[in-house]
Each structure stands twice: as structure tokens, then as C-alpha cells.
């Protein structure tokens, strides 16, 4: 049964990489069921993240957000700060797709704080870029400028000419 769980996970990932997102969802749902049977929260966390990603490409952004929220809860329970940051970043981008910029800002700020704690300058730069865009969408131009300047500073530091 444990091997079946891992295999469903691998199958889901392969279907995802092939662009078969509906089949990826079916496989990852099976993986999730088996992870729950075993009380394997790390596997459960991976399944929720993979499901969230597949729902993004199915255009089901609300469903993706719910899966990323479960990913975030589990990342916190497992005390995995890097995964917590990634889940916040995914939620920020998903709420941007949903044009809910206030919620997007909440999650991008959470991502920014963790990136700073982890001394992850690339993550920090992405958070500032995202925050600048969300504030622009809301017409908060002063805030947008602040984050654009931070993004520029970090991009120069890490040598990201793009």
C-alpha cells in the first residue's frame, strides 16, 4: 500500500509534466488518500501542493487556493519554513489570478517576511516584484514604487539583468 502511494505520486507528476492535468489530479487524489491512511503528513503536504499546481493549469483557481491553504497548514505543522514560504508565494499568485489583490498582498507579505528570515534574496526579490504589481493593480502607486525600488536593488545585487 505504501508503494502504491508513492507510485500514484510519481504517476501524478508524470501526467502533470505531460500536460494531462485532469489525470494528474486523479492520481494525486489517490496519493492523498493513501498518505492520510498512513498519517504521512509530509506526503499529504506534497499531494496538496501537486493538486494545487494542477488546478492552476485547469483554470480552477479557487480550488487551487484551497489546496495551497492545506499545504500551508501542513508546512506550518511540519515546521518547514521554506515550504511555508513557497505556499504563501503560490497563494499570492493564485489570488492575483483571481484578481483579489488585497489577499494577494497578504500572502506576498507573509512570503517576504519568511524570505528575509531565511536570507533568501531571490525569494525576497520575487516577493517585492509581486507586491509592486499588486499595489499597482490597486492604484497604490507610492507602495508600488517602494517595492519596485526594493526589487531593483535586489536584482542588481543578485545580478539579474532581466
Amino acid at each position: 500500500r505504501a508503494a502504491q502511494g508513492r507510485t500514484y505520486g510519481n504517476l501524478g507528476n508524470t501526467q502533470y509534466l505531460l500536460g494531462n492535468f485532469q489525470n494528474a489530479v486523479l492520481a494525486h487524489e489517490q496519493r492523498l488518500l493513501i498518505a492520510k491512511e498512513f498519517g504521512d503528513r509530509a506526503a499529504e503536504r506534497r499531494a496538496y501542493c501537486n493538486l494545487g499546481n494542477a488546478y492552476i493549469f485547469l483554470g480552477q483557481f479557487e480550488v487551487a487556493a484551497e489546496h495551497y491553504k492545506r499545504t500551508l497548514q501542513l508546512a506550518r505543522q511540519l515546521r518547514d519554513r521554506a515550504v511555508e514560504a513557497q505556499a504563501c508565494y503560490s497563494l499570492g499568485n493564485t489570488y492575483t489570478l483571481l484578481q483579489d489583490y488585497e489577499r494577494a498582498i497578504d500572502y506576498h507579505l507573509k512570503h517576504l517576511v519568511i524570505a528575509q528570515d531565511l536570507r533568501d534574496r531571490i525569494g525576497e526579490g520575487r516577493a517585492c516584484w509581486s507586491l509592486g504589481n499588486a499595489h499597482t493593480a490597486l492604484g497604490n502607486h507610492e507602495q508600488a514604487l517602494h517595492f519596485a525600488e526594493k526589487h531593483l536593488e535586489i536584482s542588481k545585487e543578485i545580478g539579474d539583468r532581466n
Binding site: 508513492r6 489570478l97 509581486s130
Partner: peptide, 26 residues
């Protein structure tokens, strides 16, 4: 105040491009 369509947000586009190749491996 939702003036900008999300799909036109370059940071989101970049995230989706990366996401397309990202899987949580067993």
C-alpha cells in the same frame, strides 16, 4: 479598483512558467 487583468501580471506569468515544470517528488 481591479484595473489590471491578472494574466497580464508579469510576475504571475513568470511563476506559472516555473510552475509548469515543478513537481513535489516522492
Amino acid at each position: 479598483a481591479k484595473r489590471m487583468h491578472a494574466i497580464q501580471v508579469d510576475s504571475v506569468q513568470r511563476w506559472m512558467e516555473d510552475l509548469r515544470h515543478m513537481t513535489e517528488v516522492e
